[in-house]
Simulated scan of single mutants.
Amino acid sequence: MAWVSRYVAAVLMGIILLAGPDAAAAQTADLSPEADVSLITILPGPAVYEAFGHSAVRVHDPEQGIDRLYNYGTFQFDRWFVPKFLYGQLDYYLSVASFPAALRHYEQLGRPVVEQTLNLTPEQRSALVGFLRVNAQPENRVYRYDFLFDNCSTRIRDACTDVWPTVDWSDAPDPQLTFREMLDR
């Protein structure tokens, strides 16, 4: 029965994410100097799709009343979820939601949320938010999920690399390790 409550929670989160005005369109104004962009990490949960945690990006501009979560980890949870996932045919998409609503959702699930404000120049912040806005458009938001190579974390990494090609990812894993060995750590 626990899976039923998780399923209901996933459906409710989908409704929260899709309800209300188009969040990407609501963010067409330039951000104020008080705005922040943060990496949000949601720690692992008990469901199979929660086992490795989750990453998203928060855009917060209190002066303009903007507090949005850009979430590359949204998917359609239906009876075909497991077969689609196992066969590599599961589409994910970038959703934009109210950060306070998303935070309440994760807190209700008992999943701790960690926020790390990114130390960005105004130009870098603007470039990243612009990238996210373009990615949130209906024609750009869907992608084919890949557990290792195309997921909520790699999408954020790729956004950073796209807007700042000089980002140093020098903490790369040992190339001699297998994927299983890296995951075991």
Rank of each mutant, 00 (worst) to 15 (best):
Q124N: 03
P44L: 02
P100W: 04
E123A: 11
D78W: 04
A102H: 07
F81C: 12
E34R: 11
A19Q: 13
Y72H: 11
S55C: 07
L69Q: 05
L39N: 08
I16A: 13
V37S: 06
E63C: 04
A47Y: 09
D91L: 08
F81S: 00
L69D: 09
L43M: 15
A25N: 09
D78L: 07
G53I: 12
P46Q: 13
Q108T: 11
D61N: 04
V59H: 05
P83K: 01
G65K: 10
A127N: 08
D30G: 12
Y87I: 07
G110A: 05
A47E: 12
E107H: 11
F75S: 09
Q116M: 07
G73I: 03
L90R: 04
P112H: 07
L103T: 07
R79M: 09
V48A: 15
N119T: 14
G73P: 04
R104V: 10
W80I: 02
Y106W: 15
D78H: 03
Q89L: 09
L120G: 10
T41F: 13
Y49C: 12
D36I: 03
Q108M: 14
G53R: 12
Q124V: 05
V82E: 09
H54N: 09
I40Q: 09
V113E: 05
N71C: 01
P112R: 13
A29Y: 02
L31R: 07
A56W: 01
R125H: 05
G88Q: 08
G65N: 04
H54M: 10
P44R: 06
L18P: 00
A102E: 03
Q116I: 13
D78F: 02
V114F: 01
I42L: 06
A23L: 06
L18H: 12
Y70S: 01
Q27T: 13
S98A: 08
G20Q: 08
E123G: 04
W80E: 14
R58C: 09
K84L: 00
L109P: 01
P83V: 07
A56S: 10
V59L: 03
E63A: 14
F81P: 01
H60Y: 12
V96P: 04
L17V: 05
E63L: 13
E115H: 06
